[in-house]
Write a protein that binds this DNA or RNA. Structure first.
Lengths: 257, 257
DNA sequence: GAGTCACATTCACACAGGTTAAGTTTGCGG
DNA sequence: CCGCAAACTTAACCTGTGTGAATGTGACTC
């Protein structure tokens, strides 16, 4: 059920929720697990949000499509992360969500989500914190696609995916899950499949990066980060504990309401 | 002081805050107004957030820069909008903020922001709603830069700027503020200044769009929207009232804490 | 173990958009 | 209302990435 939780959210919940809260959360996830085949749409743009969704294993992708079919992957949702807070915010979803590969998500309906939030006093703040980081990642993707060239874009995305799973390695490198095909990598970076292929080969030659068996091997993280001009600030890997206090402060007005 | 408030936020506050709340908010803004010259940095990436900033007149831009100087405008903050909620969320800002042209912002320090939130029970939810819409806009910018070609990108941005000021015209067109130079338009769309110039001329020819005197003239909105394949869903122009209820529900757990 | 499918790879060629470098126009500060 | 800087425009040339189509390769199925 648990799978490898991403650094950015799953582990944080585990650390910042009380053990009773954590158990309620985990139980709710387990009770509502559902599988999707690769490529299946989970939510389509324009629908009314019906559930709080949390990825349990596999990756989900947020995407948008133009009327003529051109498609952009906007974000990747890794195991342990909530897909979005649309259930609590918008009337109609403005983007679609689908399965990168075989995927298990928990789909917590409105009622159960409500009672879960009441059982876990810090959960709402933690969910908000997740959204804040997601927004920061979205901004980085914007500059990635807008300003970096092909090799930098792909390198940057690889660094991000690695860091979101294992943090930044102090030295050397490592490996991590990487579930995207080159075609999907193209949709995420705004390149073509063909050019992504050329680019991946370039990275193989320049710093021995390997993409094999749904895993990404990075012999020297610093070297790859150098190519991408990768700066991990935007992942806000530290400071989560304080963040929860801060978000709580934002809503302090409510407590006295 | 007030200036033309954008559809997306200023007017909403006006409608959804009680008149006492609205007066407290306006008073706080007026008390903390500060001017910046065109191009001045207001916040630099990596700084600790020190204030809740709200644009009073002029436009602000969020941007990021790569080490070699390439720069991407990530978002535009229009009059009436808060720049971000960094004060309540992150330890270090992950992007910079500067003045598109001469700009007046209110800079509400931590203490005053706290007391303001306590005076205005719905303010926190409204601020959150603003962030939700901002995130949706960021997603649209990602697909804009990633998938649309030059003329589509520029047309899309023009439609957005217009719609954020006046909503979608039922028929015909209209005019609105447009404070970006072609160079800034280039930084926002991931193109070059030279190519933006070519593109703007193309739009002039194809649908008589004009950019003059810091104003944008759109004779036929539908035509421009057609070029861009513009779909206003992501601006969430409707449904704000309900949204505030929803965000409140998200934090209901807290009320009982 | 032949057939199928998904994915990666390669090639030849085209073009949207980048680059560099002049001009020209506009508008603001004095 | 002058002078200067910022903004816009034009031109010639170049290149990174897209296009379309074919081939290779490994894994899974019946």
């Amino acid at each position: 059920m648990t799978g490898a939780y991403s650094v950015t959210f799953g582990r944080i919940l585990n650390r910042l929720l009380s053990s009773a809260e954590w158990m309620a959360w985990e139980a709710s996830l387990a009770r509502n697990a559902r599988d999707y085949a690769k490529g299946t749409d989970i939510v389509r743009e324009g629908e009314r949000p019906a559930a709080l969704r949390v990825v349990l294993s596999g990756w989900a992708q947020k995407y948008k499509q133009l009327p003529d079919g051109r498609r952009q992957i906007l974000a990747l949702v890794l195991p342990g992360q909530p897909c979005d807070l649309d259930l609590f915010t918008v009337g109609r979803t403005d983007h679609s969500l689908s399965a990168v590969r075989r995927l298990t998500v928990a789909e917590i309906g409105r009622q159960e989500a409500g009672s879960l939030l009441r059982q876990c006093p810090n959960l709402a703040q933690l969910l908000c914190w997740g959204e804040i980081v997601t927004a920061a990642i979205q901004r980085e993707w914007t500059i990635n696609i807008g300003q970096r060239n092909a090799i930098e874009r792909v390198a940057q995305l690889m660094c991000e995916i690695f860091a979101r799973q294992h943090g930044i390695p102090v030295s050397g490198g490592g490996e991590c899950d990487f579930l995207l095909t080159q075609g999907q990598l193209a949709e995420a970076t705004g390149l073509t499949q063909v050019h992504v292929n050329r680019t991946v080969q370039q990275l193989r030659r320049r710093c021995a990066v390997e993409l094999r068996n749904l895993r990404l091997f990075i012999p020297d993280f610093a070297e790859l980060a150098g190519i991408a001009a990768f700066n991990a600030n935007y992942l806000h890997l530290d400071g989560t504990d304080r963040a929860v206090e801060r978000v709580t402060a934002l809503f302090r007005g409510i407590e006295r309401d």
